[in-house]
Nucleic acid binder design. Structure first.
Lengths: 160, 160
DNA sequence: CTGTTTGCAAAGTCTTTGCACAATC
DNA sequence: GATTGTGCAAAGACTTTGCAAACAG
């Protein structure tokens, strides 16, 4: 969950980044960032983001949303992520997840869970030793069944 | 490298899969599969594949290439892979790489190298223990600098 | 005020689909 | 010969761009 004061903090931080780049915090951008903050676990696509931002800012156009996420990606405020559905999704980097994180994609309910633990240190060391490849960044998506869906499956079995 | 006899073997195996599904090995499909076999390390996009197949089969249409990879994906003969550029690429599963493999994407030269080692056993165990998430499949892309590019960089330094 | 930003609509990519003709088994 | 497959062109999904009007700093 995100608290109101945290939201204000992040917004301020982002406004500063924009201003340093000579850009403006327009109502449209503000609404877009707020929506991303409020849904920071959801990995929204452009269309989804557009639909949500419209609740706050009904006049906004889809093109503006695309342009805003473009700007935010350049300023490293959001990450662009592409899952196997080929659709680009956006994912805020809050102060506590500055480094890239991993995704657990549930194949039952479609939920995406982030994990911030650094699980790959060892893997990256191996890749360096065995292939001479110097790792700078990584994308890891694990597909499977989440805890909730497993519990539901178990429940269904018990009910028989 | 792929030898001629290996290519014939794989083609035969694929023809059988097609026939089992009531599908035909047309010249277009044959040319597409051959191109995929010959370039099995390259992770071709539809357009790239189309351009290459055209050398063998100049009459082929782009739509046919799309339909062919669709069929091949359903038969688990190719994997669909999406990198961060958002473009879908296709990647043959030969008999020796039936399980899903990882990718090393060089940010200097754009080359994609596959690694077949199973590096994630430990990671998947941790995810199960810590999050109760049951992993069924995974996608891992490591971005960085490949051995060749590192060597070139080193060379450039030495030349100064 | 001045350069940015916006909304709209038009254009661009990549991919899928409809249909009449052609080819395979 | 019946069914599956093909090429083309048209349509679809997602994203980008051009432009005049609106706005933030």
């Amino acid at each position: 969950m995100i608290t109101l004061s945290l939201l204000t903090d992040e917004l301020g931080r982002i406004e500063t980044s924009l201003h340093q780049a000579g850009l403006k915090l327009t109502p449209q951008r503000k609404a877009t960032v707020k929506t991303l903050l409020k849904n920071h676990t959801r990995h929204l696509s452009a269309e989804e983001l557009f639909a949500l931002v419209k609740e706050d800012e009904p006049e906004i156009g889809l093109a503006t949303v695309y342009r805003t996420v473009e700007v935010l990606a350049e300023l490293k405020i959001v990450n662009r992520v592409t899952f196997e559905d080929g659709m680009t999704r956006y994912d805020l980097r809050t102060s506590d997840n500055g480094h890239f994180h991993h995704h657990l994609l549930c194949q039952k309910c479609g939920k995406v869970q982030e994990i911030h633990e650094d699980l790959l240190t060892d893997v990256e060391k191996q890749v360096w030793q065995r292939f001479g490849f110097k790792v700078l960044d990584h994308r890891l998506t694990l597909m499977g069944i989440c805890q909730d869906c497993l519990a539901k499956e178990q429940q269904a079995k018990d009910d028989l």
